[in-house]
Amino acid sequence: MSNALRQVQVSPLRRSLTRVSQSVSSRVVGKKRPKVFYATVSVAGTVGIIVTQIILSVWVSSNAFEIDELQTASKEVTRSSEQVQQHVSELSSPQNLAQTAEALGMVSSSTPAYLRLSDAQVLGQPSVASSSAGLVAGSYAGLVPNSELAKWRNPAPLTGNVSATSVATTTAADASVPLSPSAGATIPVPQTR
């Protein structure tokens, strides 16, 4: 680097003194040193570019594996979510809700009545729902069929890791939430004042 600088400072002076005679020798001196310099720079540059390219492409292709792995994982998660969504939408079908409600001893109310707050007037004729109002009991259960729901009621035997997890989750949920009053002692009486 310092050689190059000196060269640049010297050459204009020489040229101004002896333009013709000196010019030849100055070119010889001036040309020899840059040749080595430029060769070094260009070779180093080329090597540098190749190395960078290799590093980059290795990095990119190693990322390709990572991307693929993540995409597969993401697909799996999406599938799990889809599976649960499907289960939820089929469980929330009216057939299932009605059957579950009746199994828990609930009946559909008969005519409703309303209490008007402004004058405490009762509108309509309140009446007690009859216990015989069961709509989906016994053989009436399948009158509005839903084969998707039947699938969840009698699930196909499952194997593999995924199914094992889902079965475990369901059992845990079942255990923690008692579904019918009979399963857990008595219904707590609300405190009124």
Partner: peptide, 12 residues
């Protein structure tokens, strides 16, 4: 076949 069956089959 549905997703549940597919995943179980795939796991085989």
């Amino acid at each position: 076949v549905d997703l549940t069956a597919f995943r179980a089959l795939d796991a085989l």
